[in-house]
Amino acid sequence: MIPAPFDYAAPSTVEEAVTVLADAGEDAKVLGGGQSLMPVLRMRLAAPTTVVDLGRIPELRGIREEADALVIGAMTTHDEVCRAESVRAHAALLAEATHTVADPQIRHRGTFGGSLAHADPAGDLLAPALALDASMTIAGPAGRRTVPAAEFFVDFFTTALAENEVLVEVRVPKHTGWQAHYEKFNRVAQAWSTVAVGAALRMEGGAIAEAKVGLTNMDTVPVRARTVEAALIGRPVTAEAIREAARDAAAGANPGTDANADAAYRTQLARVLTARAVTAAART
């Protein structure tokens, strides 16, 4: 089906985009890679008056390395993230998770920032961004501000972005040498994650020195499994120890019920997938 009619703007700078958004008012939609927005427009579940395409803004694209962080432009495609040596080296969990997003065609168009701003709790990049303590640079009429991931994800499909703001880039602290795995569980390859777990580990002498664990689709926002992280510290990599630490993976989460899973089953998945993610990360 064809979308309802809309006006189209393709600003060439972030500042111009912010101005266009301000002028267009509340019925404007930001178009990133379009891989979530286009189906919504085609099904006419949304009918914005103006679509603001960020695809012609060079600043939003690319990955740069700073001393202690990777800075990923919001319009960097999933494919570019997957291919970037720097992401593999300094944010392996993100590389792992990005590889599981949708399918190759969609990864060619879909963008890192777009996924985060869309804030679908089943999206695979939210939990890794949260787990790696990423922070988001946001541009608005009043200039730029930075929001940590923990505050960026507000609710189901809702972020700290105001209607007239644009996500510019995401700063991911370097986790150089960390081992990571993203364990995704879904009904078919194309389906969104029923539950998924991302684990990043800093290993020292065969034991876990530090752990970061994020859960996908266990709440209306991504969830950090702090209890698991704490329980893993100093643990040797044994099946027993990991299973023990993963037992309370869903603590603090408030999993929902949908066609694929109820809360109890999600809790079970969180437990099992956490153990598997940690085990796999430790082995890499």
Binding site: P39, M43, R187, V188, A189, Q190, A191, W192, A259
Partner: peptide, 16 residues
């Protein structure tokens, strides 16, 4: 019908 798209009506892919 809550399975009114191919995102919800799960026709298997080569991976499945």
């Amino acid at each position: 019908l809550t399975t009114a798209s191919l995102a919800d009506y799960l026709v298997p892919s080569a991976m499945d």
